[in-house]
Design a protein around this nucleic acid. Structure first.
Lengths: 97, 97
DNA sequence: TGGTTGATTGGCATAATAACCAAATGAAAA
DNA sequence: TTTTCATTTGGTTATTATGCCAATCAACCA
């Protein structure tokens, strides 16, 4: 495995790692229904504001979501529509458990 | 979020976490070409036998691979064919980075 | 039987994550 | 301009993940 192949692998796992947390996956699923402000996500998750903010940063750095500040609020939305389609495969893995 | 929804999320993230490591993802991609014995994977990765064995256990516990002991060797193969299809979406995320 | 090979397990040190609280930022309202 | 509100950042601690070494196990061979 050369260094280029290693870099590609690391980039892919960055996306997977971003999705591989219950709070972050919940937020991504929630964003399927359209953009949400941070406060809505905090309410739904029952976590600290700072914790949710950091989770959103992870998703943003991975290229999964984008943010848009309007007025006092920040709205997050999915950057790539297929993100949740591919979750059907994950569910298939679970069912064949 | 009730406890049932939380359990489903945790189960999904178990699969994602299993894939979210360079060595494990590399092995899964390699298994796309058919079953491989542990020794082949060790050679390709350049990691310790014990390390590779533990990574494979993570994939097995997540339901991504199955093992088959034949003689002294253990062969691993993908349990769910769609695992790599959904990686195309991950690649799409990377390209729109 | 005794030894070798392929693989797993246990143990340990180190690194990376995740949660909270407190404090800082920054834009809008007063 | 001062205050306020939504969010982010910094700091700390607890938990989890990773990788190597040594020991073990199971199957084959001499």
């Amino acid at each position: 495995m050369d260094s280029k192949a290693r870099a590609v692998l690391t980039a892919k796992t960055k996306v997977l790692k971003a999705l591989a947390h219950p709070a972050r996956l919940w937020m991504v699923e929630r964003l399927e229904g359209g953009e949400r402000c941070v406060c809505e996500l905090v309410d739904g998750l029952g976590l600290d504001f700072s914790t949710v903010s950091k989770h959103l940063l992870v998703l943003k750095n991975a290229g999964v979501v984008v943010d848009d500040k309007r007025g006092k609020q920040v709205f997050y939305s999915l950057k790539v529509p297929c993100v949740l389609k591919f979750m059907h495969c994950v569910e298939a893995v679970m069912e064949r458990g």
